[in-house]
Design a protein around this nucleic acid. Structure first.
Length: 212
DNA sequence: GCCTGGATTCCG
DNA sequence: GGAATCCAGGCT
């Protein structure tokens, strides 16, 4: 299988993200068809990228080879999964936001509890739970079978005409950059929520600060 | 060292 | 709309 398109230059990461729609991701007996992804450029241009200020202990795998998994912990409770893209040192990545469970439904249901099938992997943290992966997947290859994840080509082609794009979800910076791609009309695509700054807490927030 | 706020989800 | 719940990264 040819995965060389994953290491197209970081400038092309939006195209890489779009190309990932319909690809399938298998882990722990569950297979997911990707229906929603977001592109993040690496160092420099993209203030929304974890890597935009350069490598740190957390983001070091983003600077490694394409096709590896970058997982990160957010909000004190959730894990999210990215595919590292671009050339080594560029740190581009594609956040896997949602997918349709097409195999191992019973396993995914066990992991996700009593939710509708379309919600099993509808959202980046939910997708990670459905796949049964976590921090141990960070830095592993998603393309050579040595890690818990395996990325494989679409078994069902995606019609380019049904691909939609728009602003990234929950991103404060660069909200006008339309680097989120999804399969239009697919019920497993997560509902769009614009970034809402959390209200400040504590005394200073209560003194003369309008609550909007 | 301290402090802020987040590529979210679930519940009220 | 807000809480839950941790820590990376920026700043003092």
């Amino acid at each position: 299988m040819d995965y060389s398109w994953l290491d197209a230059p970081a400038a092309a990461v939006p195209d890489t993200a779009r190309s990932l729609l319909g690809w399938e991701l298998t882990a722990g007996g569950v297979r997911i068809r990707l229906t929603e992804v977001e592109a993040y450029a690496g160092t420099g241009e993209d203030p929304a990228s974890h890597a935009h200020r350069g490598p740190t202990p957390r983001t070091r795998v983003m600077f490694g080879p394409a096709g590896h998994a970058y997982t990160y912990f957010v909000f004190g409770m959730h894990w999210c999964l990215n595919v590292v893209c671009g050339r080594e040192g560029e740190a581009a990545a594609v956040l896997l936001r949602a997918g349709e469970v097409i195999d191992g439904l019973d396993i995914a249901r066990k992991r996700r509890g009593d939710v509708a099938d379309r919600d099993l992997a509808r959202g980046p943290a939910r997708l990670v739970v459905a796949l049964g992966i976590g921090p141990e997947a960070n830095g592993t290859s998603m393309i050579d079978g040595t890690g818990p994840l395996l990325l494989t080509p679409p078994s069902r082609p995606v019609d380019p005409a049904e691909i939609a794009q728009g602003p990234r979800v929950g991103v404060a910076a660069a909200h006008d950059v339309p680097w989120r791609y999804w399969i239009a009309g697919d019920p497993t695509v997560s509902p769009y929520r614009r970034h809402v700054p959390r209200r400040r807490t504590g005394a200073s927030a209560r003194v003369g600060v309008p609550t909007t």
